[in-house]
Nucleic acid binder design. Structure first.
Lengths: 153, 153
DNA sequence: TAATTCCTTGACGTTTACGTAAGCAATAGC
DNA sequence: GCTATTGCTTACGTAAACGTCAAGGAATTA
């Protein structure tokens, strides 16, 4: 019980894991992949605030569809100083491609949210009474028609 | 050469695949998974406009992070008429959870786009002249600081 | 001292979403 | 009639991202 000073600056593997809703295995895996480099106290890992920030970045990167390898490359941008030109150039191209993909993804998400909300409304109505009334069936049809209309372009 | 009438209403597997930038294998895989049900002409698959619409939905679903299983469940909503209540309820819950996740994802994407654009600007500057000038190094530092600032909360 | 608890390093297992190759049928063009 | 293209099925392979033991070390707690 002498972890008072560290509670704000340093984290054990399970502290960080539970805070971010991942498992310890995940953190070790990220370390294997070169995404995190916690220091050691004896043989135990100690995560700094910077490690925590990196983890946050990793998880956000994952949520938007980057692979772990891509995320590592992005985070190694600083180290890229000594890298070659071609590498810089391909990185730039991949960034631009990612931006385009992300914008596409964002509009996809807007569409999906709208459809899911329509679906929720429909399910809600269906849950109100067990015997699906004609009216609800009509709503269902309307929902389907709406979805199909969205599908065509 | 008697595929004239079908060119607008029906598609061969490779037509549909190239149009959507996937492989034929992918379409067969989706069929195995119950996501597509093209009719057959002899043993060859024939995809209708409805199949094409479903494929578009599948790919969009994938882009926003649904698994193929989830996508199939969503598309089976109509068939859900004969399903039980518990299933309806869990489906509803999963929809709502998905909506929340999608909104989170959307803000993640906005952040990522901003960071990637900053990264592009930085890489652009680094590519202008081979010898990284002091000014550019300063920009790099600024970029890093910006990124780090974003990371803290 | 014994029992938990937390951490460690392997190492193999699992799921998802296809890739890839083998071997054969049907069709189209020369 | 031969060959090139396109498609089919079956089946094994693979990369990503962990999960899941196994076996053990160190430290706190009863």
């Amino acid at each position: 019980m002498e972890r008072l000073k560290s509670s704000l600056l340093e984290y054990s593997i399970s502290q960080l894991a539970t805070e971010f809703g991942v498992t310890a295995r995940t953190l070790r895996f990220y370390e294997d992949k070169g995404l995190l480099r916690p220091t050691r106290s004896g043989q135990s890992r100690i995560y700094s605030a910077a490690d925590r920030a990196r983890l946050r970045l990793i998880l956000r990167g994952k949520r938007v569809g980057f692979t772990l390898d891509e995320i590592r490359e992005m985070m190694d941008l600083e180290t890229l100083d000594s890298g070659g030109f071609i590498h810089l150039n391909t990185t730039l191209k991949r960034f631009r491609a990612r931006i385009i993909a992300l914008k596409q993804q964002r509009s996809d998400i807007d569409l999906s949210i709208a459809e899911l909300e329509a679906g929720c409304a429909w399910l809600d109505a269906r849950l109100v009474d067990r015997e699906p009334s004609e009216e609800i069936k009509q709503n269902a049809k309307a929902f389907e028609a709406l979805a199909l209309a969205r599908l065509e372009s």
